[in-house]
Nucleic acid binder design. Structure first.
Lengths: 188, 188
DNA sequence: AAACTTATGGAACAATTGTTCCAGTAGTTC
DNA sequence: GAACTACTGGAACAATTGTTCCATAAGTTT
């Protein structure tokens, strides 16, 4: 029989990770402490220590979880067609409504720059994108993916974040030649 | 007459900023404390407090200084011709020999995402690039600048950072049509 | 040299940190 | 119900933090 305690434990573990992400969204990675996370999650101060060996482990778990969610979002965009308009809308949303989340993602992203064991997780959406799209022109696609990162980062430090109208022509330019990035199965 | 004390003060102020950057390169923004910076700069623990109102002020000063240096580098690349090869070489250097520095720059970059007063400084190299190049096709140029950021960030989390041979075709693709980005004065 | 401004650097502060400890609770299995 | 396991949560630890204070030193102006 399944152990109800373990099930609740797993639930709490995830709620701690979610709380960590909220803390990062609000205050940045620097704001993550055992106590701030515990307060945010509504659990005792010692709970994060109980479920994670260290603060580092907690951040790692958070990055892995964020990376997973990001991959889901990415695949959904691809599945929805991946036209310039749709991509521009997603980018605009990332730097406006979801600005805090995007900022948090990039802070965790950079964390991977200092932890080799995290690189694979941080890079996974890129690999997944290549796999899902199977681009005819790999160079053009790499340029596109790089530009996506750059547009997001630059959108985060803009005085006023760009909207989809401003982003669409740039996206169009990047995927010019075709009007979407759907797999070549439809194009060949 | 010039006050020798103030001159030395300015020198020490700058040496503290430089030490801060070294600390960020080595340990990240999280590693910046009054004491770690003082130790790195070889000054008493209270020196950073004496020259900067707070840790935040110290980070701000560091970002402003880094941004200035980055602009210099950028203008030098433009002045040197700005061919795909030269750009690729610069990017490769940024994610290999200068990896730590580039990582530090992006951490400070993201800091600007949370401090509106820093945005202008973080964005200055972009504005300067546009001004220096005066691109005929602004959309293409914005896409290029975004891709530069993306290539650097992705280079930082790659298992093995890309070299100029891998980067050049991507850069070429981005500036296709022309073989450099020199001002239209030469093109018109 | 007297009066001033600026820089130095150690001592000390309360506050917060990560982490450990441990007695207690509540589920689960036998 | 006894033995076991998973979780709770408060108390406490030393260590480190940002910052203040202050007596002293050094340099500049008068």
């Amino acid at each position: 029989m399944v152990d109800g305690r373990k099930a609740r434990g797993e639930k709490k573990r995830r709620s701690i990770v979610e709380a960590t992400l909220r803390v990062i969204e609000r205050e940045g990675v620097v704001g993550v402490t055992h106590r701030s996370v515990a307060r945010e999650a509504g659990v005792p101060t010692t709970a994060p220590t109980y479920y994670f060996a260290s603060i580092d482990d907690l951040l790692i778990a958070t990055l892995l979880w964020v990376a997973e969610e990001l991959c889901d979002d990415m695949l959904q965009i691809v599945a929805s067609g991946g036209t310039a308009r749709e991509i521009a809308v997603s980018l605009a949303r990332a730097v406006n409504e979801n600005r805090a989340r995007t900022l948090a993602e990039y802070e965790l992203y950079l964390l991977a720059g200092r932890r080799p064991e995290l690189k694979a997780a941080a890079r996974r959406w890129l690999d997944l994108a290549v796999e899902a799209v199977r681009p005819a022109d790999p160079v053009a696609f790499r340029a596109f993916l790089a530009a996506v990162d750059g547009l997001l980062i630059q959108g985060l430090i803009a005085d006023v974040a760009p909207n989809e109208e401003e982003l669409e022509p740039i996206v169009s330019f990047l995927i010019r030649g075709r009007d979407d990035f759907t797999p070549p199965a439809r194009e060949q």
